[in-house]
Design a binder for these strands. Structure first.
Lengths: 338, 338
DNA sequence: TTGTAAGCGTTATCAT
DNA sequence: ATGATAACGCTTACAA
């Protein structure tokens, strides 16, 4: 490998091998079908000597395809997003794609900007885990035939592949477990619903679960980080209205931590004074208080499947939009033991 | 904005405005200096009507610059990496750059592959938070004059800007706090050192702290996730050798959780039976056991500074490699109260 | 089977 | 001040 300061180009290889640029290009794209073994060997040698590899930028410009996948996440700080990202990145790379990441930092308005930025780099497809608030660009993208996969959150009007936890199953699992443990009066705490489909769906599932289960009562509360005292009030109200043991279902790990904090403020023991089961298992869940009961999501799998859907579409799959729902798994711990 | 299915090109704009492609290009690159207001207005109008924006790919091909920054992280699952990533991405975007992410997934061997992949996309600079194990490509990159910034971990032989927690300060802070709280016999637990400079440095700092502080004893243990019983043994040994109260300094949040788990296995109370202070604060630290005392890193700031260094180099700054060390902040909690 | 040449969407160097 | 034109590194008709 000679050490030129500049990267060598297809022309360098052609010159060195004594062939045309076209032949070198063929070596990379149709080696088996179009090339004489002898020529192929010469090219191969020159490529090795120069340490040449094609410029994806130039290829992209010519082909209109980039081997790039755009991944837009609402908030890279969210461990769930990260876990999905991880799975997706892995699958993409295995398929020869690189991931371009755009983080919204929870700034709703930037969704279209992000999609456009990635579009301009000619990404071949999108994986979206966003708020679905400002989906104009996403819609346009899909209309242009670029594959889009939604993770965890649906966008209304956007009929594309969708990969997510089965929220109904997860809520039923949580609720059923609480019942078995003897809790009767329940409160679902979620982040502000906004237009986030997964949050809304969990509320719906919860409401239906309570309605369908005689002897239980339920309510919902939207908690925001800036307003811990609102949460305190909601929890106090739960305890007041409860005739028997009461429990909280938390909509994600961030909220679970808020509940834990609130319980600490009130001096309540988790499990005994108030039950808690949360969606999203975390490495620390077993060690907080008596251990937090949680429903884990198969996050890696979700990311992997999202990428896989995209790959299939890129290979031309024309089936109707699919909806892939994966079940969660309950991990019972002290926070649901009375 | 007319809705063509294809993105419009500079040629479309030129035609529409009745000018040449060169003029449109000038409109974007040297508007003030080279264009008649009248012409500029016509171009501006055409651009708006067509919703045109230049193709970064084509620009990149022509200019040899891509407005892309390559970010290589050892493990996207690590919250520290994510936090840094977040800060860096933000700063890059503000400067008009997009981040291309390459995650090693803790696969040491892939470092060069990642750097090469990103290089082929003509990223203009690198932010590296990796193991430094396989730095061949990084070295080559730096030699080619592409700016590189290292975060948290040095690579030997690679003399470039470096941004990190001040590990000496952080360890001294932790150790000092333990002393004040009355702990005398200390154990530093870290992930396997390998070639990771930050881990090594923390051990050095710890050793020196113990040596320089009469009346204390210290030891180090390298803990691996697969071997919890090894950790148990190390902790038992600590308690045996300890004449008075003993405590553990944990090298990062993952290890802290392992210590917590080990203490739980032994039935020890954190703080009373064994002290614990960890580097890396986390949202859950206050709620695990009696609360885990931790030294927080200014992660956002670290990422921001890394990106900022890069931007300065991209603007031609030729100063000698800088080393930016930021102090940590102690958050005292129950795990260091006897 | 291989080479020639046009063109992907830009920018930069010439002219004008 | 503006326009024609040649690159940037690659792929792909079309020719040979």
């Amino acid at each position: 490998m000679t050490k030129e300061s500049e990267r060598s180009t297809i022309a360098d290889v052609a010159r060195r091998a004594g062939v045309s640029k076209a032949t070198v290009s063929r070596f990379f794209n149709h080696r088996e079908t179009l090339l004489t073994p002898e020529i192929a060997r010469r090219v191969e040698l020159a490529v090795a000597e120069l340490g040449y590899s094609p410029s994806p930028m130039a290829q992209s410009l010519k082909r209109g395809r980039s081997r790039l996948i755009g991944l837009v996440v609402a908030d890279i700080t969210n461990p769930y997003s990260v876990a999905v990202l991880r799975g997706a990145e892995h699958a993409c790379r295995e398929a020869g794609y690189l991931v371009m990441l755009f983080n919204l930092g929870n700034d709703l308005e930037r969704e279209s900007a992000g999609i456009r930025a990635l579009t301009s780099y000619k990404v071949e497809g999108f994986i979206l885990n966003t708020m679905g608030h400002d989906a104009g660009a996403a819609l346009e993208t899909a209309r242009q035939g670029k594959p889009v996969v939604l993770v965890d959150r649906l966008h209304r009007g956007l009929e594309v592949d969708f990969v997510s936890l089965d929220n109904w199953q997860a809520i039923e699992l949580s609720g059923g477990h609480l019942l078995e443990a003897g809790y009767r009066d329940l409160l679902l705490v979620t982040e502000p619903l906004g237009t986030v489909s997964s949050r809304i769906e969990r509320v719906q599932a919860f409401t239906q679960f309570v309605d369908a289960t005689p002897g239980t009562t339920g309510a919902c509360y939207e908690s925001r980080a800036e307003d811990p005292s609102g949460l305190d009030a909601a929890l106090l109200q739960l305890r007041q209205r409860a005739k028997g043991p009461c429990a909280v279902v938390s909509s994600n790990a961030v909220v679970s931590l808020r509940i834990v904090a609130a319980a600490a403020r009130q001096g309540w023991r988790l499990g005994g004074d108030i039950g808690l089961v949360g969606i999203d298992d975390t490495p620390w869940a077993p060690y907080v208080g008596p251990g937090i009961t949680a429903v884990s999501q198969p996050t890696d799998e979700l990311g992997r499947l999202a990428a896989q859907c995209l790959m299939q579409r890129l290979q031309g799959l024309q089936a109707a939009p699919r909806s892939i729902l994966l079940p969660g798994t309950l991990h019972a711990r002290g926070s649901t033991q009375r």
